[in-house]
Design a protein around this nucleic acid. Structure first.
Length: 410
RNA sequence: CGGGGUGUGGCCCAGUUCGGUCUAAGGCGUCUGGUUUGGGACCAGAAGAUCGUGGGUUCAAAUCCCACCACCCCGACCA
């Protein structure tokens, strides 16, 4: 991508109504734009990052045999009355259509997926299985805040699993935890993300969250330094030692809840009468689990964690482009190198703008691609092109051939 | 939903205390021309403003009064 073709541009100053680091920086760098409180557009750079995160999540969901589907964003009132959540779900977006019918902009999809699955499942032979989707959710938060961390419209991956019995759910639940660990690891948050024992809200007594340590987070958790496990403050009275090793010396930390998983049991299969017939002929309710992951929130969390005073430092797997190529003066070598990198399938953003060197460096640091290539008269005299990692102070000079070769390997 | 704060070209912001010289200043960005090119360069010129919205007071309102709206922050809520 040539930067002169990119329709967005960076800002030197942040709009003053964005004070959260993630939104301020993503807006300044041209990744997102705010339409209204808690509602953002994803611009070319931001959309690329979002798609990379989605691809990772999709791979991990498919790996635990999740079947991808897409359910509607809109649903009728009746589904929510069946479970009582038409009245109980306080941030439900309710819409009255012109025919005076009530609809919901779905905040989650238990009310949709359960009757959907009921149409196909009637026998023990058809269980277990799981379905997932990556989709926009709506929650009418009283107060949207912290940029992408708490929006009114946001992207979520939701997985639902259906089982014959509790043991089968328990086993699948463990697989889902492993898949989530893989996701956060691949997104660059392995060290900072903790499996956290939490309340189950209205779903179940307990649940598990994945909490990423950050001062920008809203949650207080108690971290076990030995186990990569934590306890949410909301259940610390009942659980004040590490659930894994029994350690009493837990450390209080602020954290961003990036995912929440629940053993639903029959919470939704009961009201929708999602049953199956056993081998012996008896009818039983399907045992369910649900597994949410806030994708746009995760993107925001990555920015909160991965940055320095100059801008974002994207983890390689989710960077909008692997390489930011800067040409400091017009020369054919830059154009040639750009073409060569594209030819070896490297994601490259090519700053071919007619602006000062300082502006290009500043923008490269702000946008945060993992590798920066600088080609200039100076670099050519020194032997080719400078390669620098975003987080490093100094780069190295490589020949043009060496640079291309180094990206072929990746 | 309670408390606090803020609304002035695409963005940042001066001006509001004490109404008049505001026919709204400056910076960023944009456009034209020129000089620049290893850390947000410089010169010259230009375009771009319902001063959040509605009402009121006044000879006169960005400025005073009333109502509303939007956004941000703290708290509450958070399946």
């Amino acid at each position: 991508m040539k930067q002169t073709k990119l329709f967005t541009k960076t800002l030197k100053e942040v709009p003053k109504d964005e004070t959260s680091y993630n939104a301020a920086t993503l807006i300044r760098a041209g990744f997102i734009d705010k339409t209204t409180a808690g509602v953002y557009s994803f611009l070319p750079l931001g959309w690329r990052v979002l798609n990379k995160i989605k691809a990772i999540i999709r791979e991990e969901m498919l790996a635990i045999e999740g079947q991808e589907i897409s359910m509607p964003a809109l649903s009728p009132k009746e589904n929510w009355q069946t479970t009582g959540r038409w009245d109980d779900f306080d941030v439900l977006f309710k819409i009255k259509a012109s025919d005076n019918k009530d609809y919901v902009l779905n905040p989650t999809h238990e009310e949709i997926v359960t009757p959907l699955v009921k149409k196909f499942v009637s026998s023990y032979r058809e269980l277990p299985f799981s379905v997932f989707q990556i989709q926009t959710k709506f929650r009418n938060e009283k107060r949207a805040k912290a940029g992408l961390l708490r929006g009114r419209e946001f992207l979520m991956k939701d997985l639902y699993s259906f089982h014959l019995n509790q043991e089968d759910l328990d086993a699948y639940y463990e697989k889902a935890i492993k898949a989530y660990e893989n996701i956060f690891s691949r997104c660059g948050l392995k060290e900072s993300t903790y499996l956290t024992y939490a309340s189950g809200g209205s779903f179940s007594k307990y649940s598990h969250e994945f909490q990423t340590l950050s001062p920008a987070g809203e949650d207080l958790i108690y971290v076990c330094p030995k186990c990569q496990v934590a306890v949410n403050k909301e259940i610390i009275k009942e659980q004040n030692t590490c659930p894994q090793c029994g350690n009493k010396d837990l450390q209080e930390e602020k954290a961003i809840e990036v995912a929440n998983i629940f053993k639903l049991g029959t919470k939704f299969s009961a009201p929708f009468a999602l049953n199956f017939q056993e081998k012996e002929g008896d009818k039983k309710e399907v045992i369910m689990g649900c597994y949410g992951l806030g994708i746009s929130r995760l993107l925001g969390a990555i920015v909160e964690l991965c940055h320095d005073e100059k801008g974002i430092i994207w983890p390689e797997n989710v960077a909008p482009y692997q390489v930011h190529l800067l040409s400091l003066n017009k020369n054919d070598k830059a154009e040639k190198l750009y073409q060569d990198l594209i030819a070896c399938k490297t994601d490259v953003l090519y700053d071919n703008r007619d602006v000062s060197a300082g502006e290009k460096f500043a923008d490269a640091d702000l946008i945060g691609c993992p590798y920066r290539l600088v080609i200039s008269e100076k670099s050519i005299k020194a032997g080719g092109v400078e390669l620098k990692k975003r987080q490093d102070r100094e780069g190295v000079i490589l020949s043009l051939e060496q640079v291309v070769a180094s990206f072929i390997k990746k």
